[in-house]
Computed example of a mutant assay.
Amino acid sequence: MSIDAASSQTLPDIIVSAVAIIRDRRVLMVTARGRDVVFMPGGKVDAGETLLEAAQRESREEISVGLISDTVRELFTVVTQAHGEPEGRMVRMTLFAGIPDAEPQPAAEVSALHWISSAELHRCPPAGAEVVRRLAASGLID
C-alpha cells in the first residue's frame, strides 16, 4: 500500500462519556494507577448503551458515585486527538454535569482524585485540557 493510501484511511473516533463534578470552582479529575496525567472520570461507551448510561456507569466504576437524576445535564462534546493513540485518532467525549449521590472515592483503576482549576491545565491530556478550558470560559471553574 502506498503512503498516500495509508494516510487516507482514518481510524474511527473513540466515543467516550465523562462526568463533571464541580465543587468550589474546581472540577474533579482522576489519575489512573501508574499514570501521571489527570483525566475526567469516564470512559468508552459500551454497545447498546446511551451516552448518559455510560457516564453513570463509568462514574460508579471510577469514583464510586452516581449522578442524581434530576441534576444531570449534558454540557458539551469535545473532539480532539486521543491521548496515547496514533496521530489522527480522535476522541469524541460528551461531558455530563450533575450532583453526586455520595462523596467521590477512588475505585477500580483510579488511584487518586484531584480538584483541578485552569491553572493545572498542563496536567491534562488534550480532551481534558479542552474540557477545563471550556468550563473556565463558561465561568464554572477558575
Rank of each mutant, 00 (worst) to 15 (best):
M1I: 10
S2C: 13
I3N: 14
I3D: 14
I3W: 13
I3M: 13
D4Y: 12
D4L: 13
A5H: 10
S7Q: 15
Q9D: 09
T10C: 13
T10A: 15
L11M: 12
L11R: 15
L11N: 13
D13V: 10
I14M: 07
I14P: 02
I14N: 06
V16K: 01
V16M: 02
S17M: 06
S17C: 09
S17R: 09
A18H: 03
A18T: 06
V19A: 11
V19C: 11
I22H: 02
R23C: 03
R23G: 01
R23L: 04
D24V: 01
D24P: 03
D24E: 13
R25A: 03
V27W: 00
L28S: 02
M29D: 00
V30W: 00
R35I: 00
R35S: 10
D36M: 08
V37W: 01
V38G: 01
F39P: 00
M40E: 00
P41V: 00
G42Q: 08
G42Y: 07
G42L: 07
G43H: 03
V45M: 08
V45H: 04
D46L: 13
T50W: 11
L51E: 12
L51M: 13
E53P: 07
E53Y: 05
E58H: 15
S59F: 02
E61C: 05
E61G: 07
S64P: 06
V65L: 06
G66T: 14
G66E: 12
I68K: 12
S69K: 14
S69A: 15
V72H: 06
E74Q: 15
L75S: 06
V79D: 08
T80M: 05
Q81T: 06
G84S: 12
G84F: 12
E85T: 08
E85L: 12
P86E: 15
P86I: 15
M90Q: 14
M90R: 15
V91G: 11
V91N: 12
V91C: 12
F96I: 08
A97W: 07
I99D: 14
P100M: 08
D101K: 07
A102E: 04
E103S: 10
P104G: 05
P104A: 04
A107H: 11
E109H: 09
S111R: 13
S111K: 13
S111F: 00
A112H: 00
A112R: 07
L113S: 07
L113G: 07
W115G: 08
W115P: 10
S118F: 03
S118Y: 01
A119Q: 14
E120A: 10
E120Y: 05
L121Q: 05
H122T: 01
R123V: 03
R123A: 09
P125R: 03
P125E: 09
G128Y: 05
G128T: 05
A129N: 07
R133D: 08
R134W: 00
R134F: 01
R134P: 02
L135G: 02
L135K: 03
L135D: 02
A136Q: 06
A137F: 03
A137V: 03
S138F: 04
S138T: 05
G139D: 06
G139K: 07
L140E: 09
I141H: 06
I141E: 05
I141M: 09
D142K: 10
